[in-house]
Each structure stands twice: as C-alpha cells, then as structure tokens.
Amino acid sequence: KKYKVVEVKENKDGTVELVVENENGEKKKITLSKEELDKLKAGDTVELK
C-alpha cells in the first residue's frame, strides 16, 4: 500500500514520528530513525507492507 506523509514530528530521542495516510483516508503513525527520514519530507509517498 502507498501512504502519503501528512505530518513529520521530531522526538527528543532522535527518532522521527510520521503520520501517513492512504487513499482511503486511513492514517497510520510510524516511527523512523533520523537516517531513514533523511530522504523523506511532507508530501512524499511511502510504501508500507
């Protein structure tokens, strides 16, 4: 499934919390490390299994 990044929030521990949404409007929260996030920004599309 493809999800669009709608919100990006940095946590104090250096991880980043993303809120992503698919075309049905379903939202998910995922947490990434700073390194994983470096290639993402709001409006990008991510694929989740």
Rank of each mutant, 00 (worst) to 15 (best):
L40V: 15
D13W: 05
V8D: 00
E21I: 08
V8A: 06
E17P: 00
N22I: 05
D13R: 02
V19H: 06
T31K: 08
E7R: 06
D38W: 12
G43K: 03
T15P: 01
E17C: 14
V8H: 03
T15M: 08
K1I: 12
L48V: 15
E36W: 15
G25E: 02
L18S: 00
K9S: 08
Y3I: 01
T45N: 06
L37C: 15
K41R: 11
N24D: 12
K2F: 11
L18C: 09
L32E: 00
L40I: 14
L40N: 03
L18F: 04
V8Q: 04
E36L: 10
L18T: 01
K27E: 04
G14L: 02
K29N: 10
N11R: 07
L37W: 13
I30F: 15
V19F: 06
K34S: 11
E36K: 12
D38Q: 10
T45S: 04
K28H: 14
T15A: 03
V6Y: 06
G25L: 02
K4S: 03
T31L: 10
T45P: 02
V16W: 15
K39S: 11
K12G: 13
D44K: 05
K29C: 14
D38T: 13
L18K: 00
L32R: 06
Y3T: 00
K9F: 12
T31Q: 07
E35Q: 12
G43H: 03
K2Y: 10
G43Q: 04
L40T: 10
K27V: 09
D44N: 06
K29M: 14
K29W: 15
D44F: 02
S33T: 08
D38Y: 13
V6T: 06
K1T: 10
T45E: 14
V5K: 00
I30A: 02
K41H: 05
L18R: 00
G25K: 04
V6C: 11
E35C: 15
K9W: 12
T45R: 01
K1W: 09
A42K: 08
N24T: 09
V5I: 14
T31C: 14
A42V: 15
A42Y: 04
V16F: 13
E35F: 14
N11A: 07
A42P: 15
E23P: 05
T31P: 03
K4H: 02
K2V: 11
D44M: 05
V20I: 10
V46A: 02
V5Y: 02
S33K: 14
V5F: 03
K34M: 13
G25A: 03
E47I: 11
T31D: 01
L18I: 10
V19R: 04
E7Q: 09
G43R: 03
E47H: 12
E23R: 04
E7N: 09
L37Y: 12
G14A: 02
T45F: 13
L32H: 01
K1L: 12
K39T: 12
D38K: 11
K28V: 12
T15K: 04
K4G: 01
N24C: 15
L37N: 12
K4P: 00
K9R: 12
L18W: 03
E17A: 09
V5L: 07
G14N: 04
E7F: 13
K28I: 14
V5S: 01
V20N: 00
D44A: 05
E17F: 14
E10Y: 10
T31E: 04
L40G: 02
K28Y: 15
G25F: 05
V5D: 00
E17S: 09
T15Q: 05
E26C: 15
A42F: 06
N11P: 02
A42E: 11
L18V: 11
V16M: 11
L40W: 13
K4D: 01
V46F: 06
K1R: 13
T31Y: 14
E26I: 09
A42L: 14
K28C: 15
S33L: 13
K12V: 09
K41W: 08
K41C: 07
K2P: 04
N24M: 13
K28F: 15
N11C: 14
L18E: 00
V8P: 00
E21R: 05
L48I: 15
V8S: 04
Y3Q: 00
L32T: 06
E36Y: 14
E7W: 15
N11T: 08
V20W: 03
L18Y: 03
G43N: 08
E21M: 08
L48W: 03
V46K: 02
D38N: 13
K29P: 03
E35P: 11
T45C: 15
E23G: 05
K27Q: 12
D38M: 14
N24V: 10
L37Q: 07
K12I: 10
N22E: 07
N24A: 13
T31G: 02
N22Y: 04
D13A: 02
L37D: 04
K12L: 11
K29T: 14
K49D: 15
E21F: 04
D13P: 01
L32Y: 12
K41G: 06
K28A: 08
N24W: 13
L32I: 11
K39C: 12
N11V: 04
K12N: 12
E26A: 07
T15W: 11
E7V: 11
N24P: 01
E36F: 14
S33G: 09
V20H: 01
E17H: 08
N24F: 13
V8I: 11
I30H: 03
G43C: 09
D38A: 10
E7K: 07
K29V: 12
L48Y: 01
Y3H: 01
S33R: 15
L32W: 14
K4E: 01
N24S: 10
V5A: 01
I30E: 00
K4T: 06
E35S: 13
E10G: 03
E10F: 06
T31N: 06
G43A: 04
N11Q: 08
E36T: 11
L40M: 07
E23V: 07
V19W: 11
V16N: 02
G14Y: 01
K9G: 05
K49C: 15
L40A: 08
L18D: 00
V16I: 09
E17V: 11
E35M: 13
E26L: 09
E26R: 05
S33Y: 12
E7T: 12
Y3F: 06
T45G: 02
V8M: 10
E7C: 15
V5E: 00
K41M: 09
D44H: 05
K9Q: 09
K2L: 12
V16R: 07
K39N: 14
E47T: 05
K4C: 15
V6S: 03
D44C: 11
T15C: 09
K9L: 11
K28N: 07
K29F: 14
V19C: 10
V8W: 12
G25H: 06
V8E: 04
N22D: 13
V19D: 02
K49Q: 15
E17I: 09
K29Y: 14
D38C: 15
L37F: 12
E47F: 07
V20E: 00
E26V: 09
K9A: 07
K34A: 10
E36G: 15
E36N: 14
S33P: 13
S33A: 12
E47M: 05
D13Y: 03
